[in-house]
Design a protein around this nucleic acid. Structure first.
Length: 660
DNA sequence: GTTAGGG
DNA sequence: CCCTAAC
């Protein structure tokens, strides 16, 4: 981290003294003291949560700074992670509408649950997954909100988002100590480099992935993760969409965290606490639970690309994050060391806390006594911002915001610390872990960790299918999908069908994939849109999911059948979308065409993958000339034109409509 | 009942 | 999305 920082740059640091140039590396790294601005006041919970999340992070960062200064020695090794005495206290009020309050307060170490955000683990990637599974409803809601947030965000961030910056804003983390580094990450998440292709979506959480994730990975993951982040560059979007805003010339934010510590910690955790128990929780759930804790394939980079997809994902994640926080906050009473015995009025689960926190616990709650605890603070790893001296305060704020956003966007995982040790085994019950004991509750801590890039948000899109097809399938996903044409039917699982089957299957798509669980199916779809990615990610990348979710229908069917045959298209591609009519399809197409014709800046709402738009345009042009109607034959291959664009494979050609 | 378009 | 007009 520290090392990473370019020497030639002056670092502005927020500190007690205010904004000033960082004189020491420590400062530079340690960051900044960021004052939370009471912004969250009465807006929708979602918004609040989002903002709060940000604020929270900022406050955490501040805290970290303080800590770093105060306790250099002790912390040297782990200090940051420690939820120390001074902690940022955050109070989140009801998820409902109450405004969330974040306060930087001096707390006693004793604070019930303090989160050490400092630890960013690679594991995060799973967060999304984890979350998804757990709270379907909640998730859905969140998701819904999420969108709102996103929009809001875009607005709020305004500058951030709007092409203010040309240079990408880079987030770099220190790998210090992290041996694994990027390479590991890369390996892990092969397929996508967010930066590389606009089409790439955040890696969707794959069922597969979940499965794959071993209960625990090496400690290394974290490190890798962190590094990963370092390498990530924001703003490298191809599309040149709004996201460009994130790229600000000269502005960089880097998040850094002491690798060593993490590694050590992880090791400790692994060695000292490694529980194998995996109750009955299904894989799916496990993944959820683990999400927070497990190192995921961290494709953080993805997050940093502010592609539309990513952007979406990003927000989703954020939302996710928010949700978590909110949940915590929601618990009306902060019960700090609640015991089993206590009847928990508001358990986290109740609060809607994502599986992560609730985890296994939730499943057992019904029968078992509930453990109550409140999270008073989250600790975040160092997050430092690098900005030119000439930068304005406003720009600094923005930069910080971006950094935080990026962090959030990446997805945040929640880590659980018990008596200073990180509890990695998600499968372990609270009882088994000892978290149910009051005594232990005092030493219960939570950390906000960088989430896996891939898994998370995409969720929405993915999930819907899951929820439908599979029991667990989170509903949230569904909602996400709703926005999109195909998805809409969603809940019913049509989405999968729609997307994959109709068009995709027909052509090229990967039938096999389709067969997979809903999630997978979605993934399949994506392939259409993003060739490489989808393939690489086989499972389904979050990105894809998102794309699907966000993006309305794809032109695939239309490409095959041609415009003007909406009824046929509907029957063919959206047979299961009962709520959709061919008129809807037609309108959707119209909208897509319109969208494709206007400049990205003029577009609103969920971003539509440029590939899709290209295909739409191509198909539209093609059929305009060929008059679809007359051409009774719709050869799938007919519109080869489009192929080149998005899917290298013929798939694309035929598949275009999947999304639709 | 479909399709095309405007709003 | 809805509504209307034209097939």
């Amino acid at each position: 981290m520290h090392n990473v920082l370019p020497r030639g740059v002056n670092y502005l640091v927020f500190g007690k003294k205010g904004l000033r140039t960082a004189h020491s590396e420590k400062e530079r790294n340690g960051g900044f003291n960021y004052r939370l601005v009471p912004r969250c006041r009465n807006k929708q919970a979602v918004e609040d949560s989002q903002i709060c999340a940000f604020e929270l992070l900022a406050s955490l960062a501040r805290k970290l700074l303080l800590e770093s200064k105060s306790s250099a020695s002790s912390n040297a090794s782990e200090g940051h992670y420690h939820v120390g005495k001074d902690v940022i206290k955050q109070e989140l009020h009801s998820y409902d509408d109450k405004p969330l309050k974040l306060e930087c307060v001096e707390q006693e170490s004793r604070g019930a649950a303090s989160v050490a955000a400092s630890e960013l683990t690679t594991e995060n990637s799973d967060n999304v997954k984890e979350f998804k599974p757990a709270g379907d409803d909640a998730f859905l809601d969140l998701y819904g909100d999420f969108r709102g947030d996103r929009d809001r965000c875009s607005h709020d961030l305004g500058d951030l988002c709007d092409g203010t910056s040309e240079n990408g804003f880079k987030q770099e983390r220190d790998a210090k100590g992290l041996d694994i580094g990027k390479s590991s990450i890369d390996n892990t998440c092969p397929s996508k480099d967010p930066v590389e292709s606009p089409m790439k979506f955040p890696p969707p959480v794959n069922s597969e992935r979940d499965v794959k994730l071993p209960s625990r990975r090496d400690p290394i993951p974290k490190a890798s993760f962190s590094r990963h982040r370092n390498d990530i560059q924001l703003g490298s979007r191809d599309d040149g969409e709004n996201f460009s805003r994130f790229n600000r010339p000269g502005y960089r934010f880097k998040t850094s965290r002491p690798p060593t510590r993490i590694g050590d910690r992880i090791r400790k955790l692994l060695t000292s606490k490694y529980w194998k128990v995996a109750p009955k929780v299904k894989d799916f759930e496990h993944s959820k639970a683990d999400g927070g804790m497990r190192p995921l394939c961290s494709k953080r980079k993805t997050y940093y690309n502010y592609d539309r997809y990513q952007y979406d994902a990003h927000y989703k994640r954020r939302k996710f994050f928010s949700s978590i926080v909110t949940s915590d906050c929601n618990s009306p009473e902060k019960v700090v060391g609640g015991d089993k015995g206590r009847s928990a009025t508001m358990s986290h689960a109740a609060c809607g806390i994502p599986p992560l926190l609730t985890g296994n616990k939730a499943s057992h709650q019904s029968k078992e006594s509930r453990v109550k605890f409140s999270i008073k603070s989250f600790k975040i790893p160092e997050l430092y911002v690098e900005v030119p001296e000439s930068a304005t305060v406003g720009s600094l704020k923005i930069t910080v915001m971006e950094a935080v956003t990026a962090l959030l966007g990446g997805g945040i995982c929640v880590g659980v610390l018990l008596q200073g040790k990180k509890v990695r085994d998600d499968n372990r019950t609270l009882l088994q872990t000892g978290i149910s004991c009051e005594d232990n509750l005092d030493s219960l801590g939570f950390t906000l960790e960088p989430g896996p890039e891939k898994a998370p948000p995409p969720v929405c899109s993915e999930e819907p299918p899951l929820s439908i097809s599979s029991d667990k399938g989170p509903r949230h996903l569904t909602r996400c999908l709703i926005s999109s044409f195909p998805a809409t039917p969603v809940v019913d699982r049509e989405v999968p069908d729609v997307t994959s089957d109709p068009l995709l299957l027909t052509n090229s798509a990967h039938p096999v994939d389709i067969n997979h669980k809903p999630v997978t199916s979605q993934t399949d779809e994506q392939p259409d849109q993003s060739k490489s990615e989808s393939r690489a990610i086989v499972p389904v990348s979050a990105l894809n999911v998102e794309a699907l979710a966000v993006i309305p229908a794809s032109p695939k069917a239309v490409e095959e059948l041609g415009t003007g045959r909406w009824r046929n298209i509907k029957l063919r591609a959206f047979e299961n979308a009962y709520h959709r009519t061919y008129v809807d399809l037609k309108d959707k197409w119209k909208t897509l065409v319109h969208t494709a014709k206007i400049s990205p800046q003029q577009r609103r709402g969920e971003p539509v993958p440029q590939e899709l738009l290209d295909r739409v345009l191509a198909a539209h042009a093609y059929w305009s000339q060929h008059q679809a109607k007359q051409q009774g034959k719709h050869q799938p291959g007919a519109l080869r034109i489009t192929d080149g664009e998005s899917d290298g494979n013929g798939v694309a050609t035929t598949a275009p409509a999947d999304s639709m």
